[in-house]
């Protein structure tokens, strides 16, 4: 029974990794950039949840879960702003400059938040105020169920969006070749901004789901979460939507089971060990292909 519970725990944190990994994988697939600042979007989302509950919803009858609206809006705006201000000027620069800039943006957001709101963490009120549901004798919290279901729905919608809509197809075309995409009339700039917007909106959702189970917001909370989500995206095969979800779930389950049955202190080492193992056996990730440079 404990095993089942841990499995569900793993699925829950795994779903959050998956949502964050989707943002990494979309940005990487299209802009070839490891957006290290993506984890900080989660952190900003968490703060938005805290403040919107404090300033708007507290004392009203509106359920706290509606904090999702300002959170997604703020996260999307911040994501688009970062793209326009920091990454767009570097579009044709060496790849390492982009990486350094991403690290710079990440540090900037962390330290600005630390300066404005202080280094200590803020607690988040309970978002899903509902009793745990009993399934086969185990108590499953409502946020676990919501998290898993929401992730599932968002992933499927995103997949449909990419395959069926004009914008999704423009993204796929842009990911193949900027020049060719603009030749067939795709506005590469706005496609890239849209990519960041969607990725950040997903991160906004992820941040609300995250604080519904781990009810704290702190300036440095996004850093490790982000790196693990990126790891998940790479494990699954970066650039691939199903890959991000698969990687996220595997990572989450592995982490939960390690914490429960082996050692909580070793869990990070085991998660990163998995990444190395996967890349050594399948250099393109579980679902990806290994592209060799053509001579």
């Amino acid at each position: 029974m404990n095993f089942l519970l841990q499995l569900l725990n793993g699925l829950q944190i795994g779903s959050i990794y998956a949502l964050v990994a989707l943002g990494y994988t979309m940005v990487y697939g299209i802009a070839l950039l490891i957006n290290f600042a993506h984890g900080e979007i989660i952190m900003i989302g968490a703060y938005t949840v805290v403040f919107s509950i404090q300033l708007i919803f507290a004392g009203t009858d509106i359920p706290y879960v509606f904090a999702i609206i300002p959170t997604v809006i703020i996260c999307t705006l911040v994501g688009m702003l970062i793209e326009r201000l920091a990454y767009k000027p570097l579009r044709n620069s060496p790849r390492i400059s982009n990486l350094i800039t991403a690290i710079g943006v990440s540090l900037l957001l962390q330290n600005t938040m630390m300066k404005v709101f202080g280094a200590q963490s803020r607690s988040v009120p309970k978002i899903f105020d509902h009793k745990p549901i009993e399934v086969f004798g185990a108590n499953i919290s409502i946020s676990t169920i919501v998290t898993i279901v929401v992730t599932l729905v968002l992933t499927i919608s995103l997949q449909i969006f990419m395959k069926k809509t004009k914008y999704g197809k423009a993204m796929v075309a842009t990911s193949e070749d900027y020049g060719a995409a603009s030749l067939v009339g795709i506005n590469v700039d706005s496609t890239l901004t849209l990519t960041f917007a969607i990725g950040s909106a997903l991160a906004g959702v992820a941040s609300l789901l995250y604080v519904s189970s781990y009810p704290q917001a702190a300036p440095l909370m996004g850093s490790m979460l982000g790196i693990k989500a990126f790891t998940a995206a790479v494990v699954g095969g970066i650039g691939l939507i199903p890959g991000a979800v698969l990687g996220g779930l595997i990572l989450g389950i592995l982490e939960a089971l390690t914490k429960a049955f082996i050692s909580s202190r070793l869990s990070d080492a085991i998660v990163f060990g998995l990444l190395i193992l996967v890349l050594l056996i399948r250099p393109g990730g579980l679902l990806g292909e290994d592209h060799k440079e053509k001579v």
């Binding site: 579009r91 044709n92 070749d177 900027y178 020049g179 060719a180 592209h291």
Partner: peptide
């Protein structure tokens, strides 16, 4: 890592 055409 990938030979995508770049430059807009």
């Amino acid at each position: 890592s990938s030979s995508k055409g770049r430059g807009t």
